[in-house]
């Protein structure tokens, strides 16, 4: 028991890094999701194709491979990211691709009658998107975003493999210096990750319950 209590404060600096990576990559993923999601439903086929290639590229390969590519292979082109930035970029682009599917699905889920009513009121394409479609689609997206944020938190642990001293990396260091701590370290790691995930889990469940409010029925 003592070991467990000893470990906790030593993990905390790592937890701070993990939360930082989580927040930064979530912000990037959010932006990317909207840009790519709107691109997927663009009226220009070239935009649809480019965004589709991006999404398929990132969903078709592994997050860890993408992270390694950005950290180890990109320097070949003269672009050298810090481990933190490489992690944020890889996580943001990867989960942004998944989240863009949520955005696209939600936009398509808004019944066509809403589009027709906005055309009948002579709104421009952008007004229709901004005033009518997106506000409704946003509510449909929220549960999906909630679930992806949990996936994103889990994904942050991979940055330990490119030597960023996040929660997982801290745990490995402690375990390496004191092998008798092996069991307590990994148990505590799982517990701390779960504690960070807890608000996200509760949020996701809540969003799922509220999802259907204020959206037109087909």
């Amino acid at each position: 028991m003592e070991a467990y209590i000893n470990i906790l404060p030593r993990l905390l600096p790592g937890a701070v890094i993990t939360v930082q990576v989580l927040l930064a990559s979530a912000a990037l993923a959010f932006v990317v999701a909207f840009v790519a999601g709107l691109g997927r439903v663009s009226k220009y086929s070239i935009v649809r194709k480019i965004t589709a290639v991006y999404v398929e590229l990132f969903r078709g390969t592994s997050l860890l491979v993408q992270l390694f590519w950005i950290y180890f292979a990109l320097p070949a082109f003269g672009i050298q990211f810090s481990p933190f930035l490489a992690g944020v970029v890889a996580l943001g682009l990867n989960y942004g691709a998944y989240a863009s599917e949520v955005v696209r699905g939600a936009i398509l889920a808004v019944p066509s009658g809403q589009t027709e009513a906005s055309i009948a009121l002579n709104m421009s394409n952008w007004q229709r998107m901004r005033l009518i479609i997106l506000p409704q689609a946003f509510r449909i997206m929220l549960p999906g975003f909630g679930n992806i944020s949990i996936e994103l938190l889990k994904g942050t642990s991979l940055v330990s493999l490119i030597t960023l001293t996040d929660l997982t990396y801290k745990g490995l260091i402690i375990q390496n210096t004191n092998l008798s701590y092996t069991m307590p370290v990994f148990v505590m790691l799982l517990v701390v990750y779960f504690i960070i995930a807890l608000p996200l889990i509760i949020l996701a469940k809540k969003l799922e319950k509220n999802a259907s409010r204020g959206v037109a029925k087909a």
Partner: peptide
Amino acid sequence: FVRSTPPLVQLFFVYFALPA
């Protein structure tokens, strides 16, 4: 619990900690 904690840490747990 399993769904919301990283598989990487679970892997370390199974491979390094379970032998204990």
